[in-house]
Amino acid sequence: MNRDLIVNLVIFALLVAVALGAHVAGQGFTVTLATKAAILGLAGVGLNLALGYGGLVSFGHAAFFGIGGYVTGIFASHAANGDPILTLPFTLMGSNEMLGIWPMAMLAAALAALLIGALSLRTSGVYFIMVTLAFAQMIYYFAISWPRYGGEDGLSFYVRNSFPGLNTFDPIQYFAICAGLLALALLFTAVVTQSRFGLALQATRQNEQRSTAVGIRATPVRLTAFVLSAMITALAGALYADLNRFVSPSMFSWHMSGEIMVFVILGGVGRLCGPVAGAAVFILLEHLLGPVSDHWQALLGLMLLAIVLFAPGGLIGLTLKALRRTEHG
């Protein structure tokens, strides 16, 4: 089809190629890095739906990432010790099945997003940013002061949850699960943004007054996008918990919200695979430069500055521009 599609496919194929290559070469650690890129990319794909397509600058997506993680951690730890999670109003037992945990993680995030979105969408601009941040920080402090699930120390679980027919401990098989979900989320985003709903969402971002004048209310459209966005990011949180077999309040912290936003901006706001490219570059830098200097994030900061100032389309936008130039030149 078009250049956009090709660039998106190449980015995804590169990620898979790195993981497969590392697997063949017997470098399990690199496979895990690629898995981390897929998971954080997925978190960014979630945020991109709200931020990129809907113009909703949420500085609180760590809330949903953390909710996904904690739901996973709580189910897994209860499965280990056999105590029910809830006895009232109904009995809810722990579980080790990813296929059972993911819907719970996404449902919990959807409910939280419905509440947070309904309140924060009454504001806009910088107030929206602050309200979403405030909600995420509230949950962060709640997690810290909740000794039942580890409080400040976080919650470890010793067995990675299971997926039918696969050995989730094998790095390449766990990568396959994460990459598969990433592909699904990308497909979902591609379809939704081109649907009637996507048309309306992007219209409300660009010109709310005009959208209203053709009979489209912005708030329900935005709230829907916000909830879908949160669900995708929560799924990433669940995968991240299983990757580390550990969750901690830092998943809820504003640093996390900032990182997810960095993936989106670095890769390209409103570009389908932008967050994947952004997360991959982030992890690459962290891996290559982290051991050299603790201040590697200064370089990241410079990159981000350069992108925001000179290439608002992000890495994907730059690539597309370069391709166009070679085609015409």
Binding site: R196, F197, L199, Q202, Q206, N207, V214, G215, I216, P220
Partner: peptide
Amino acid sequence: IPDFTVLQNVMLAVAGADGHVFRFH
């Protein structure tokens, strides 16, 4: 809507008028 084509702009109005905005696929 500045980044939409002429066709998309008018499609948006058609969608708004018939009230079926929540169609996703």
